[in-house]
Amino acid sequence: MSRFYSPSTRGFYGLFGVAPPPDAIEISDDQHAALMAAQAAGKVITVQGGVVVAVEPSATAEQLRALAGLKLFQVSNGGISVALAGGRIALVDTDAVGRAALLRLQSRETAIWYQSTGSIEVTQQDIAQIVAAVDAHVESALATWTAIVAAIDAGAVTTRAQIETPPAPIPEWPSVSA
């Protein structure tokens, strides 16, 4: 069955016997299914170079800055894994509560570190290592956010996908543990 997409009406034709407009472009059943799936996932159907494609919807600079701020919040308030001496791993929440807990522990010789995988005993040296790792994680997230906002303002970052996976030379977001 022949299917068509019309950029002027932003509609598909050939499904119910309605004649397509003069600007309609013929597409295959597979292309139609892929375009519909992409549209359901939030993409916009358009024509580029005579080919029907699904693309990220455009967003204003203000919307992109807000999305970058949300990503910064998610990354800087996530969790990280810190490798300690003796093969121990500390799972650390980098949110404000996690950082406050670290500050309380800094006054002790040793402490029990509770995490989803059980508990481990940590020393002052371990705590200093954890604090340094959390600081580095948050600083890295801030550096990425700062570069993304500058790139948005310069018109170099224009899509949501570029906020999730920044283009070079913007540094990648630091990874977050589950």
Results as ranks from 00 to 15, higher is better:
32 H>K: 04
34 A>T: 13
34 A>Q: 15
34 A>S: 13
35 L>G: 10
37 A>L: 13
37 A>N: 09
38 A>S: 15
39 Q>N: 06
40 A>N: 09
41 A>I: 03
45 I>S: 09
45 I>F: 04
47 V>E: 01
48 Q>D: 05
48 Q>M: 05
48 Q>Y: 03
49 G>L: 01
51 V>K: 15
51 V>Q: 15
52 V>K: 08
56 E>L: 11
56 E>Y: 12
56 E>I: 06
58 S>P: 06
59 A>D: 01
59 A>H: 13
60 T>C: 09
61 A>D: 12
61 A>S: 14
62 E>M: 09
65 R>H: 07
65 R>Q: 10
65 R>Y: 03
67 L>M: 14
68 A>H: 02
68 A>V: 05
70 L>Q: 14
70 L>K: 08
70 L>W: 07
74 Q>G: 07
74 Q>L: 11
75 V>C: 06
76 S>L: 04
76 S>D: 09
76 S>A: 14
77 N>L: 02
77 N>T: 10
79 G>P: 01
79 G>N: 08
80 I>M: 01
80 I>S: 01
81 S>N: 07
82 V>H: 10
83 A>L: 12
83 A>M: 13
85 A>Y: 04
85 A>K: 07
85 A>V: 10
87 G>Y: 14
88 R>T: 04
88 R>C: 03
91 L>K: 10
92 V>S: 02
94 T>Y: 09
96 A>M: 05
96 A>Q: 07
96 A>D: 08
97 V>D: 13
98 G>F: 14
98 G>C: 14
99 R>E: 11
99 R>Y: 10
100 A>D: 11
100 A>P: 02
101 A>W: 05
101 A>Q: 14
102 L>Y: 07
104 R>E: 12
105 L>W: 00
105 L>V: 00
105 L>F: 03
105 L>C: 00
106 Q>S: 13
106 Q>I: 01
107 S>G: 08
107 S>Y: 00
107 S>I: 09
107 S>F: 09
108 R>H: 06
109 E>V: 12
110 T>M: 03
110 T>E: 10
110 T>A: 06
113 W>Q: 02
113 W>A: 02
113 W>K: 03
114 Y>F: 15
115 Q>K: 07
116 S>N: 01
116 S>T: 04
117 T>R: 11
120 I>D: 01
120 I>Y: 03
121 E>C: 00
121 E>G: 02
121 E>D: 02
125 Q>A: 14
125 Q>M: 08
126 D>R: 06
126 D>W: 06
128 A>V: 02
128 A>E: 06
128 A>Y: 00
129 Q>V: 01
131 V>G: 02
133 A>R: 04
133 A>K: 02
133 A>V: 02
134 V>M: 08
135 D>I: 12
135 D>T: 15
136 A>Q: 12
136 A>M: 03
137 H>P: 08
137 H>Q: 11
138 V>G: 05
138 V>D: 09
140 S>G: 15
141 A>N: 02
